[in-house]
């Protein structure tokens, strides 16, 4: 690998770290601006002013915001996300289990939707303009236009209520055998796959079709290459960059944007945790969740950038 590539990749990672710092500041500032006072909520209406002041001091809330930000950032650097205001538990502990759940759901959805999206994106590009292409494209546009809560609700209505094939709630059910687990995950995974793969299919198809216009693809055609050889050998290797970027953008949604799906299927993921935290003004928990979302997003985007750099033969050789 040449040093230029290494510099480029290290540069990308550096940018990601700086972005994370900026986001941490924005997240902190945004939570500061949330209306309501956590001490008032904790102590209730009947609290005496002395009790409120005492608790505020105990929670370090009387310090200026900038000091608290510095303290929080310092803790963050050591892996300490602070303690929840609501129940005094460590934020890391609260998030830990939920994050594992969310990652499980995200991994399952990615494992299910990425191969399907790639396959459909590439095949529609190969048979562009065919009945198959038009059918897939129409369905994809329809799926993009339907909000996910509708997909989720319809899925519950059809599969859980009418047909009774699948459990309506994902959590708290039977996890004794693999079949039960699959059944529990089926609906959230399918709903999420609908949302993320629609975008991936469109972007893959567009990226491949764009490279199909390149002169070297026409050259391959004039060498007698078949349509599939033109796409797989000549267009696809040059479309990796945009495709991976589209994938990363779609998949990053799985980490932060799954709140509706988690709520409808009562899935104990991290997005649901964050919404609960907002309702109790649990600032450390909100901040911790936001940072995790941001970290996941940045990781995916950085991976996509690095893959795009490595896929470029001009940089690789």
């Amino acid at each position: 690998m040449n040093p230029q590539v290494l510099t480029l990749i290290l540069g990308r990672i550096g940018v990601a770290v700086v972005t994370l710092l900026i986001v941490s500041l924005i997240v902190f500032a945004a939570t500061e601006m949330l209306p309501g006072d956590v001490v008032q909520i904790l102590l209730g209406q009947a609290a005496t002013p002395e009790a409120v002041a005492g608790l505020r001091q105990a929670m370090n809330l009387d310090q200026p915001a900038i000091m608290r930000f510095a303290g929080w950032l310092g803790g963050l650097a050591q892996g300490d996300l602070g303690h929840s205001y609501a129940n005094r538990m460590a934020v890391a502990e609260l998030i830990g289990g939920r994050l594992a759940n969310t990652l499980k759901l995200a991994a399952l959805t990615a494992g299910f939707s990425v191969p399907i999206a790639l396959m459909l994106g590439i095949t529609t590009a190969i048979w562009r303009g065919s009945l198959f292409d038009r059918a897939v494209s129409s369905i994809v546009v329809a799926v993009i236009s339907v909000p996910e809560f509708l997909v989720a609700t319809l899925a519950v209505l059809v599969f859980a209520v009418w047909l009774g094939w699948l459990p309506a709630l994902s959590f708290g059910g039977d996890t004794s055998d693999i079949w039960a687990v699959l059944r529990a995950y089926a609906m959230p995974v399918i709903t999420l796959s609908f949302v993320v793969s629609a975008q991936m299919i469109r972007m893959t198809r567009a990226a491949v079709i764009e490279t199909l216009k390149a002169p070297y693809v026409e050259m391959a055609f004039l060498k007698g290459a078949s349509r599939s050889r033109m796409v797989l050998r000549h267009a696809l290797p040059n479309a990796i960059g945009p495709i991976v970027n589209a994938m990363a953008l779609s998949l990053s949604y799985l980490l932060g944007g799954v709140i509706i799906v988690e709520t409808i299927f009562n899935y104990p993921g991290i997005a649901k945790l964050m919404v609960d935290a907002v309702s109790t003004r649990d600032l450390p928990l909100i901040q911790g969740c936001a940072m995790i979302f941001c970290l996941g997003y940045l990781t995916l985007i950085t991976i996509a950038d690095v893959v795009a750099i490595l896929a470029n033969p001009r940089l690789r050789h």
Partner: peptide, 10 residues
């Protein structure tokens, strides 16, 4: 243009 007619990735 041979420069455009060769696949840059192969």
């Amino acid at each position: 243009s041979a420069a455009a007619a060769f696949n840059p990735a192969t």
